[in-house]
């Protein structure tokens, strides 16, 4: 007994006193890592305090990493950007041997974009779908097809996100193409041009989306799965739909900048973030799906993430987002800006 007590206090000492670091996290605002109760519990358990800085686009995140070496210890990077960040020398390999939750991370994610030549450059954290959600007051039965966006019955009542990549991939799904290998871009452009008169406005943030829905401006709008769960949780009449044409899936990982001087604390924080206990609590407030199989398993059965994204039939229909090179990105941007300019 005394021995255990001594050990615990020793542990607490080393954790709380000797190596209390302040780690700086770079993430989207309101995206899990900055939940007060979570960071407070982390500080209590390890002694490390957590400070946040936010970005509003992946490009901003990369620019911040490039221009402020040493300023960040943990950064959220979408899997489509991890390789680019690694190639630019912005992030370094993560030593996962000390992490107690890494073993249960789904094998399929460990074989994906985040592990390069056997080194882990991002710990798979969350994943989700970009599809659409409906205003349940406007539909008797939920539609099962993406073509509902082109339905004249909803003219002036639809919205998509003002983002070139998402718009083009949305058009690709609607025209039956592989989102990662769009062979006929002209068809996509024509399809999106037809969509334009249907659109009420574009949305750019979750907050926008919720406001438009709450004001009853929209019947149907593209959305992210985790955000839809959050909106429904807020009491909005919202239902997330994965149509028969499929949906785009994304994976977010937590990485450690190569320039970080507090790598040990950073890895401890990442371990905390993929912990099933944290995830179950987060999910109750509306979270994306966890990349940790043990965490996903721990969810209650009525949870959105278990019900919708845990459905194997749904998983069959999704296409994971591959990295997109700059030339393709610029091509999509030109297409999208051209479409908007003609309005």
């Amino acid at each position: 007994m005394t021995k255990r007590l001594l050990l615990t206090s020793l542990l607490a000492l080393t954790a709380g006193g000797a190596m209390a670091d302040e780690i700086r996290v770079l993430n989207w605002q309101g995206y899990g890592t900055d939940l007060d109760w979570a960071t407070e519990a982390f500080t209590e358990a390890t002694g490390h305090s957590v400070v946040h800085e936010y970005f509003t686009s992946e490009q901003e995140m990369l620019t911040k990493l490039r221009t402020n070496p040493g300023a960040y210890d943990v950064v959220l990077i979408n899997a489509a950007f991890t390789r680019q960040a690694k190639d630019e020398g912005l992030i370094g390999p993560i030593d996962t041997s000390g992490m107690k939750n890494f073993d249960t991370v789904s094998e399929s994610f460990k074989e994906g974009e985040l592990v390069i030549d056997g080194d882990v450059y991002g710990v798979p954290w969350t994943w989700g779908l970009t599809s659409f959600a409906i205003n349940t007051n406007a539909f008797e039965d939920a539609p099962d097809t993406i073509q509902v966006f082109w339905d004249p019955a909803h003219e002036g009542r639809v919205s998509i996100r003002d983002d070139a990549l998402e718009a083009v991939q949305f058009g690709a799904l609607a025209t039956g193409q592989d989102v990662n290998e769009i062979t006929d871009l002209d068809v996509v452009e024509a399809k999106l041009a037809e969509l334009m008169p249907q659109i009420r406005t574009f949305w750019s943030s979750e907050n926008d989306w919720n406001q438009f829905m709450a004001a009853g401006e929209l019947d149907v709008a593209t959305y992210w799965s985790g955000s839809a769960a959050r909106s429904a949780d807020m009491g909005l009449p919202v239902q997330f739909v994965v149509p028969k044409e499929g949906a785009v899936a994304w994976l977010d990982g937590l990485s450690v900048p190569d320039s970080s001087t507090k790598k040990e604390a950073a890895v401890a924080f990442i371990d905390w973030m993929i912990d099933p206990e944290f995830y179950v609590k987060w999910d109750a407030e509306g979270a994306p799906a966890s990349a940790n199989a043990a965490a996903a398993e721990a969810l209650p059965d009525d949870s959105f993430n278990k019900q919708v994204l845990g459905d194997p039939e749904v998983v069959m229909r999704i296409q994971f987002q591959d990295p997109v090179d700059d030339a393709t990105r610029e091509k999509y941007l030109a297409l999208w800006q051209g479409l908007k300019a003609r309005q």
Partner: peptide
């Protein structure tokens, strides 16, 4: 402006804040 709200100024802003 909603879907009509794309002007020269918004495209310049996009270059600075969205696509860098």
């Amino acid at each position: 402006g909603g879907r009509f709200g794309t002007y020269y100024g918004t495209v310049v802003e996009d270059q600075f804040v969205a696509v860098f």
